[in-house]
Design a protein around this nucleic acid. Sequence first.
DNA 1: ACCAGTCAAGGAAGC
DNA 2: GCTTCCTTGACTGGT
Length: 297
Amino acid sequence: MKLALCCISNELAERGIKFQTMTYARFSALPHIQAMDTLCNRILNNFKVTHETIKHCIATGIKGYRLSSSITPLLNHPDIRMTLDQLPNFNAIADEIDATANTIASNDIRISAHPSEYISLTSKEDRVIDNSVLDLEMHAMIFDLLQLPCDYRSPLNIHCRQDGDPEEISSRFMSNFARLSKSVRNRLVLENNDNAKGVWSVKRLHDIFHMRHGIPVTFDNLHHKMLPGDLSEQEAFELAYSTWPTTPLFHYSEGIGNTRNHADFATTLPNSYGRNVYHDVELKGKDWAIYEMLRSK
DNA sequence: ACCAGTCAAGGAAGC
DNA sequence: GCTTCCTTGACTGGT
């Protein structure tokens, strides 16, 4: 079974190998030179942690890794707006990225990302679209620097998050999609959601975004459970499976009770219905949960 | 060393 | 039109 780790290794975190972040409030409270210095050091640390985590996955039989979307805090902030290569320590960062690229290229590990849930290509506000485009381009730039395939083998997975009239929302989505670089467009996939009004089920994503525009649909079993539309789990799984021109990368999680709060560990294994798929394991136990699943297969 | 509070994002809902 | 909630993990400041 091809299981993938999402962002954080609990085992490495326990050994002190952890991501760092910085808030804008803190950044602005410090003298500028000191603020930039701290930020640059944290970003470099985050790339080192990323590389360590990928090596850790390879060593433990984990077949995929979802990059954290918090590797580069603040760079897209409206009052900062920097790209990686504008950082004073970019050379050190590029060296770490190159080393990571080598690790990925010489091993069997699939890399993906799930940019923040706050990204929206459907908003009516230009400011929100601008921020979202920048954030997606930042992800794609990191993917390109890591020399990842510029196609769905390294997907950038987001939601269509707004509720309302599907025609209106999807047409806004597609006109903003056209603004994105090829690095983003070639990798962008859409995941089913379970918003209150229940608009973006697997079926609807398939009918609108896949049939009309060829965008693959990521199947998430927990979102499907909360918003099945008219489909059984297997029907939704198969429909999403049919949208991928390469091996799909789906999401697996379990809620606590009947909620969407993620449980620590799996009680069952993800059902692949006999198909070849990767599963991003969205359980709070992270790699500890995956070890258990790999043992019980 | 530890703990409680803070921070950041976009959308939805309620007043 | 404002506030609050949702979510998450790490930072921050006080003990």
